[in-house]
Simulated assay, not measured.
Amino acid sequence: MFGLNTDKAFDTNKTNQYRLSIQVSLDGFSFLVFSEVDKKVLASKNTAVKISSPKLVSRHFSDWVNAEPVLKLPYQKVTILIFEEHFTLIPNTKNSELSTELLTNPDRDRFLFQNQIESIDASLQFGVNNELTETVKSLYGNAEWTHPVSLLLDNCPDIEKPNTGVLLQSQNQYFLILKRKSQLLLANCFRAEHSSDLVYFLLNSFRQLGISRNLTHLLVAGTRENNRHLIELALPYFPTVSELHTDYGHLDLAAGINRLHFYLTLNKN
Rank of each mutant, 00 (worst) to 15 (best):
D158N: 09
R180L: 07
D158F: 07
F201S: 15
N172W: 00
R191A: 12
S212H: 01
N214A: 14
R213D: 05
E160A: 15
D158A: 12
T223W: 06
K161Q: 14
N226S: 13
S182V: 05
E160R: 03
L185F: 08
N227C: 14
R191L: 11
Q208C: 05
N172S: 11
N163Q: 06
Q169C: 11
G222R: 12
L202R: 02
D158G: 07
T223A: 11
A192H: 04
C189Q: 13
V166I: 15
R207I: 04
L178Y: 02
F175W: 07
Q173A: 13
E160M: 08
Y200I: 02
R207F: 07
C189N: 12
P162T: 02
D158S: 13
L198Q: 09
S196E: 12
I159M: 10
P157L: 05
E160V: 13
A221D: 07
K161L: 15
Q183L: 14
S205G: 10
F201G: 00
S196Y: 11
V220Q: 10
S205I: 08
P162M: 05
C156E: 07
L219R: 00
V199E: 08
P162I: 01
L168G: 03
L202M: 15
Q171L: 10
L184N: 12
R207T: 10
G210Y: 03
T223P: 02
Q183D: 14
G222D: 08
L219G: 01
L202P: 02
I159F: 00
R180S: 11
L198M: 13
L219N: 05
L178V: 02
E160K: 12
I231P: 01
I159P: 00
N155A: 14
L178F: 02
G165A: 15
L218W: 03
L198N: 00
K161I: 04
C156K: 10
I231G: 07
V220G: 06
I177W: 09
G165I: 08
V166F: 00
V199M: 03
I177N: 04
N226I: 11
L167W: 10
N188S: 14
I159L: 09
L215E: 15
R207E: 15
R228H: 08
R180Q: 14
V199Q: 02
L185Q: 13
G165V: 02
S182Y: 10
K179A: 09
Y200F: 15
